[in-house]
Design a protein around this nucleic acid. Structure first.
Lengths: 200, 200
DNA sequence: TTATATACTGTAATTATATACAGTAAAAAT
DNA sequence: ATTTTTACTGTATATAATTACAGTATATAA
C-alpha cells in the first residue's frame, strides 16, 4: 500500500466522521464545504487518489458511492486448547473456538485465549478450563504469569528469574517447580497472561 | 412507537442489508429494484411511513439521506463495587465503571459485573477484585454461585437449600456458613454468577 | 530536466435522485 | 358506511451529484 499525503488523510477522516455522524458518506461538495475547498474537483481528485491507494472504493455513477476499505473484519480471539507437540501455538489445528470481545477488555490488547489444562495454578485462582488471555511478548517481570514452551511442551506458570537460573513456579503445593537448565534443549517465552475468563 | 406493517418491515430490512453490503443507504429506485416495485413512489411512501413511525430519519434533499434510528447505543455492562446499604444494587452511585463486551461472552446474557470484595470464595478460584458476571434471576440450583441480599447487605456465596433451611456457603475454611433463619429480617436472591473476568 | 503526482479553482454537462402529482385498489380503522 | 391508511403504478420535474474538461501552481521522482 502506497503512502498517503496529509491532505488525503484529512479527506479520509472527513469521510469517516461524516459517515459516523449521518450514517451515509458525503458528496464531493460536502467534502469541499467541510475542508474549505472551493471546487468539487478538489474532492474528486483526492477521492481518486485514495481509491488508487486502495483505501476507498468509489461506486461509479452512484451518489455518495464511497466505500471505506479499511474495515478489518475482526471475528474475535481464538481459544487455544491443547497444543500439538511441535506445532505453533496459533496453528489452526489448535483453535478450539473463537470468542468475540472488546480488545480492551483486559486493559491492553492481547492475542489469544489459552484454555487451562490441569490444576497446577489453582492457588492463583486459575482453574481447569479457565481461559487466560495471552499477550504475545517476551517482556516479562518476575512473578508474571507466562506461557512458556519447554521442549515442545506448552505450560502456564509464574515466572521467576534470579542471577543464574530461571524458574517456572506452579501455584499448587502438589506440583514442583520447573528449573530451566542444561537438560532443557529448548526454552521459549510465548507470552504473558493479562486476564482471565471463566464460564460457570 | 406505532406498529409496523410487514411491507414496511421488508423495506426497513432492505435498507439495513443495503447499508451492510455497500456502506451507504439505497436510493428510492434501488429499494424498488430490490423489492420488485415498479414506481419510486412505492419506496417513497414506505419511507415516509417508517419516518412517521420513528424508525428512520429522512434528510430532505439529500440523495441516499436515510438514517436508521434503531441504533441502540449499548455502552456496556456496569461494574458494581461496594453496594451502599439499602440502595438497589444497580443504583448509579454503585457503578464503578462500564465494561464493553459481547453479551454472549459467558454463553447466556447477563446484567452486570459484581466486583468481589474479600476472600470468602477463594477456594472456588474467585479472588478479590475479580469481576463476576451476574444474571438477575431467582432460578437457582443447589451449588450455584449467587448474589444474595441479607439484611441490606450484599454477598456472593454458593447456594444450598435443604428441606428446612437455606445455606450460603463460602469457599474458604476461615469463613463460616450463613444460615437463613428467623434472625434474618430480609433475604433475597439478586442473581446468579455465570462467569468471571480477571485483570492480572 | 522532464515527467509525474499533488493540490487546487472554475465551469459545464450529463445523469442520478428526490419528490410532487395523478391515479387505482384493497384493507383497516372509525 | 365512510374515512383513513396501506400499497402500489406511472409520469414528470427540479435539483442533487458525479464527472469531464480547461486551467494554474508547486512539489517530488525518474
Amino acid at each position: 500500500m502506497k503512502k498517503i499525503t496529509s491532505q488525503q488523510q484529512k479527506v479520509l477522516e472527513c469521510i469517516e466522521v461524516y459517515i459516523k455522524e449521518t450514517g451515509f458518506p458525503p458528496t464531493r461538495i460536502e467534502i469541499c464545504k467541510e475542508l474549505g475547498f472551493k471546487s468539487p474537483n478538489a474532492a474528486e481528485m483526492h477521492l481518486r487518489a485514495l481509491e488508487r491507494k486502495g483505501l476507498i472504493t468509489i461506486k461509479s455513477g452512484s451518489s455518495r458511492g464511497i466505500c471505506l476499505n479499511n474495515k478489518t473484519v475482526f471475528d474475535g480471539y481464538p481459544v487455544i486448547g491443547l497444543v500439538a507437540a511441535g506445532s505453533p501455538t496459533l496453528a489452526e489445528e489448535n483453535i478450539e473456538k473463537i470468542i468475540n470481545c472488546d480488545p480492551e477488555l483486559f486493559g491492553s490488547n492481547f492475542d489469544y485465549f489459552l484454555k487451562v489444562k490441569g490444576l497446577s495454578m489453582i492457588e492463583a485462582g486459575i482453574l481447569e478450563n479457565d481461559l487466560v488471555a495471552i499477550k504475545k511478548t517476551t517482556e516479562i517481570k518476575n512473578g508474571d504469569l507466562v506461557v512458556a514452551r519447554i521442549d515442545e511442551e506448552v505450560t502456564l506458570k509464574h515466572f521467576f528469574k534470579s542471577q543464574n537460573k530461571i524458574e517456572l513456579r506452579p501455584a499448587n503445593k502438589d506440583y514442583s517447580v520447573i528449573t530451566i537448565d542444561d537438560k532443557v534443549s529448548h526454552f521459549e517465552i510465548e507470552g504473558k497472561g493479562i486476564g482471565l475468563l471463566r464460564n460457570h
